[in-house]
């Protein structure tokens, strides 16, 4: 299968600070990939390079087979982007925003109007279609911004922290929308700070830190790397007192429980599968150690 995104040794520095230190990333056509990483890991910079907003210092990046440096025109013709700040026109109404963008995506007047109507309804903005965006709440702006990315179904869609600022219901609806796009063949590369979001949506997760890919794999693969079950001790009001990762063996579990017993803390014990949070914490801790020993 051909690759929708192909990044090799991509480097970018801003004023002496290296943000991307040679990233390699391959995304299969039609898959949903989540970029995870702490703040400042370079997620947004990578998205900005792939969407032709920022020029890389070195390496190559191709989107749908088009080089971002040599053929940015064609790249722009195959992508959709929703960035972190809601890039909508405050003076126009929601409907006018969508119709304007529809025209710029190549729809004629009638098509743009029809598409606007559908999307406003789909994103729960039907009642506010004729209100100026200035009067919209943060979540409504965010939904309008996302609706713009859905005007035409782009072969490759970039979403930079798409659900930040959305209420839980809108979040679930957006997830559905992204899954539908994924199923229809659109390649989605999204960044997120929510591990459950990556877990729920992504076919593959790419964890980046320090400008490099630290680890990547399917959510199940990543969880497996952290080892076995985690033993938690919770207090009377369900607050977490301690958690001990184990290797998943019977003796490992027994050691963990003995340790809790010896600490004489009151509470109930639960055993759970490792979450992506555990992966995230252990991997970022490893990355930090690596940087510390290097410097």
């Amino acid at each position: 299968m051909a690759n929708a995104i192909d990044v090799r040794g991509l480097r970018k520095s801003f004023g002496g600070t290296e943000v991307l230190a040679g990233i390699d990333l391959v995304v299969e056509s039609g898959s949903i990939v989540a970029l995870l990483g702490p703040n400042g890991a370079g997620k947004t910079t990578l998205i900005n390079i792939l969407s032709t907003l920022v020029k890389p210092d070195g390496g190559t990046a191709k989107v749908a087979g088009f080089d971002v440096l040599r053929d940015p025109e064609s790249v722009r013709g195959v992508i959709g982007l929703t960035g972190q700040s809601a890039a909508v026109d405050e003076v126009l109404t929601g409907d006018e925003n969508l119709r304007m963008m529809g025209r710029l995506f190549g729809l004629d007047r009638g098509e743009a109007a029809a598409r606007s109507r559908d999307l406003l309804a789909q994103f729960g903005l039907g009642d506010s279609a004729r209100k100026r965006v200035k009067a919209y709440s943060g979540g409504m702006r965010r939904r309008l911004d996302l609706a713009i990315s859905f005007i035409v179904t782009p072969p490759v869609l970039f979403l930079d922290e798409p659900t930040t600022g959305l209420d839980p219901r809108s979040r679930l609806e957006l997830w559905d929308g992204i899954r539908t796009l994924g199923a229809s063949g659109t390649t989605v590369l999204l960044t997120t700070q929510y591990l459950d979001e990556a877990d729920q949506l992504a076919d593959r997760i790419v964890l980046i830190g320090g400008g490099r890919v630290v680890v990547e794999g399917t959510p199940a693969e990543l969880k497996a790397t952290t080892g076995g079950e985690v033993v938690e001790l919770r207090g009377a009001s369900d607050e977490l007192i301690r958690e001990i990762p184990t290797d998943g063996t019977v003796s490992g579990l027994r050691r963990a429980i003995d340790e809790l017993d010896a600490s004489e803390a009151e509470g109930t014990i639960t055993i759970r599968k490792p979450s992506l949070d555990d992966v995230f914490m252990s991997v970022t801790a490893e990355a930090r150690e690596l940087i510390d020993t290097k410097g």
Binding site: G65, F66, V78, L104
Partner: peptide
């Protein structure tokens, strides 16, 4: 690399300006 998609065509002359 093989192209995985065909770019949208350029807009007709004047469409951007009018918009």
């Amino acid at each position: 690399l093989p192209r995985t998609a065909v770019p949208r065509p350029r807009l007709a002359l004047g469409t951007e300006e009018a918009t």
